[in-house]
Simulated scan of single mutants.
Amino acid sequence: MPKEISLADVKDLVGSEVGVSDWITVDQAMIDAFAKATLDDQFIHTDPERARNESPFGGTIAHGFLTLSLLSAMNYSALPKIREQTMGINYGFDKLHFVAPVKSGARIRGHFTLAEARFRGGAMLMNTYDVTVEIEDEKKPALTARWTTISQFNPEDRPEDV
């Protein structure tokens, strides 16, 4: 996949895997920082010894919402930049499922398939991705989701044939 594409190229990518992100290590420091930022310090996330002894996970796990929030970083490393885009906006998620826990120290990466791309108004392209976050050396993914984003662009850059 090229690192950069034009607005006119996007429609040809529907149905294709358009990117696989770099690996991200989800370590205890990241989990602790997320817990502090979100005020969610449940022991299964922040107390390694207690989580090892009292949880079914054998240690601490990342918050599901931490994994979800890392999709932005995965997006940046995986998806081709749309040349004409002036701004990207999160629109929302459908069918979001936290399938398997991400244990502290695990590496994860995102797989992005462009499910739909449609122009909206004169200066927006809505992109819908089927996303899977893989956990290295695990059979089940951390999460699956359908994610819609908006690529904002100048109206004069809109392709003629859409």
Rank of each mutant, 00 (worst) to 15 (best):
V162E: 09
L114M: 03
P101L: 11
T86I: 15
N90Y: 07
L39P: 00
E116V: 01
A33F: 10
V131N: 01
F43C: 04
T132I: 12
E134L: 02
V99W: 08
E156H: 07
A29N: 09
I108L: 07
Y76L: 14
P80L: 01
L7A: 01
I135Y: 09
R120M: 09
T149H: 06
M126Q: 12
D94M: 12
I108G: 06
T144P: 08
F98R: 05
I5E: 02
E49T: 01
K103Y: 07
A29L: 07
L125D: 08
I108A: 09
L70F: 04
D157L: 02
T60H: 04
P159D: 01
A100T: 14
V131W: 13
T132V: 14
F43I: 01
T38C: 02
L143P: 10
E116F: 06
M126T: 04
E160Y: 08
G105S: 02
T46V: 15
R146G: 03
F43E: 01
E54H: 13
V10S: 07
R107G: 02
G19C: 00
I150W: 07
W23L: 06
M1C: 03
R118Q: 09
G15M: 00
S55W: 12
L125W: 06
M124R: 15
V10Y: 00
E84R: 03
S6N: 11
V99I: 13
V14I: 13
D157C: 04
D157K: 12
M124T: 15
T113M: 03
D161R: 13
T86P: 08
R158M: 05
V99Q: 05
I89D: 01
R118T: 12
F65R: 02
F112V: 09
S21R: 14
V131K: 05
T25D: 00
K103M: 04
K140T: 05
G110L: 06
R50H: 13
S69W: 06
S16P: 01
R109Q: 10
K11S: 12
P155N: 01
A51H: 03
T113K: 12
I108Y: 08
D22L: 11
I82P: 07
D9S: 03
A106Q: 11
F112C: 04
R52I: 00
L71V: 13
T38Y: 07
T144L: 02
K139Q: 14
R52E: 02
A33T: 15
A100Y: 15
R109V: 05
A142R: 03
V162C: 10
Q28G: 05
N90C: 01
L143K: 11
R146N: 08
P155S: 00
Q42S: 06
R118W: 09
K81P: 04
L114N: 00
L13N: 05
K140L: 15
T113G: 00
T86K: 15
F65G: 01
D40R: 13
M87K: 13
D40P: 09
V162A: 09
F57A: 13
E136H: 14
S6L: 12
A51R: 12
I24M: 14
L66K: 09
E49M: 01
I44S: 03
W23F: 10
V162F: 08
P141K: 08
M30R: 15
